[in-house]
């Protein structure tokens, strides 16, 4: 255990304790602000309702992230191979990115005609851009001399891509993945709020809306805690992946000097 883990842990425990104490001292009713202990209890007692929703949200998020990796990665490679394709398509990728997802979500829901599919599309839309732009940056940031070397040995475009451009772009891609992981979750949750229903099976956002209507505020907090935990788990997983892939060679994954 090092300071990086202990310090935030201590702060977290202190804040939770203060929160619990404040709720009790001022006798705040649970429908206004439940204390952390009540939220934890609700998490356990409502687990049979929350767990399937967690699974739905997680599934949409991971599917959207996977689609973002595939589409963002492939587009980046395509753009790097052809200047014309990049010049033609990149502005539209930016338009998709800068248009608020809340504004397009209703349209997508109408067009997709299937709530699950439209949630997936929304989450994918917000998640793919960081992967696309970061990977393009990485594919372009190749050492010029290494490119000359590949040219000298007669490696064509394809082998230069596989043996040089892709490995060089990996750290950038992983940076994009870390951002996209969080965005996919946000996209999945926001889209479900806009849809106002979770489709065949309901996600955590719908549980929050539903609990709000019923004034079950502790359950709202419990669902919120699960969304945060999901986000943290995705972040940690992508950080771990990044560390495992880069630790032997990339500066970003090196330990600080002793």
């Amino acid at each position: 255990m090092n300071a990086r883990i202990i310090a935030p842990l201590i702060l977290g425990v202190l804040v939770l304790a203060a929160w619990e104490e404040a709720v009790r001292a001022f006798a705040i009713p649970p429908y206004v602000l439940p204390g952390p202990i009540l939220i934890a209890r609700t998490l356990v007692s409502d687990w049979s309702i929350l767990a399937p929703s967690l699974w739905v949200t997680l599934a949409i998020t991971l599917e959207a992230l996977a689609a973002a990796v595939v589409v963002g990665g492939l587009l980046a490679v395509l753009f790097s191979l052809s200047r014309w394709i990049e010049l033609s398509f990149f502005p539209y990728a930016i338009i998709l990115q800068v248009t608020p997802i809340v504004a397009i979500a209703p349209l997508i829901i109408v067009w997709a005609n299937d709530v699950d599919l439209s949630l997936l599309i929304c989450a994918w839309l917000v998640a793919f851009f960081p992967i696309l732009s970061n990977t393009i940056l990485g594919l372009r940031s190749v050492d010029r001399n290494l490119l000359s070397l590949f040219e000298l040995y007669g490696a064509g475009r394809w082998r230069t891509l596989v043996h040089l451009r892709l490995p060089a772009a990996l750290p950038y891609f992983l940076g994009g993945l870390r951002i996209s992981g969080g965005l996919a979750l946000i996209g999945a949750v926001v889209a479900e709020f806009v849809a106002g229903t979770g489709g065949n099976a309901s996600g955590l956002a719908w549980r929050i809306l539903e609990a709000g209507y019923q004034l079950k505020v502790p359950r709202m907090f419990a669902a919120l805690a699960l969304i945060s935990a999901t986000g943290i788990a995705i972040f940690l997983a992508s950080t771990l992946l990044s560390h495992l892939l880069l630790r032997r060679w990339h500066e970003s994954a090196l330990d600080a000097p002793e």
């Binding site: 000359s148 070397l149 007669g154 082998r159 043996h163 040089l164 490995p167 060089a168 060679w249 990339h250």
Partner: peptide, 24 residues
Amino acid sequence: FVFQEPTLMPWATALANVELPLKL
């Protein structure tokens, strides 16, 4: 060709770097 900088691929071991021209 030997460049001004070592111009090695940082993700590959010394051996893999030397293998590159043969691989290509």
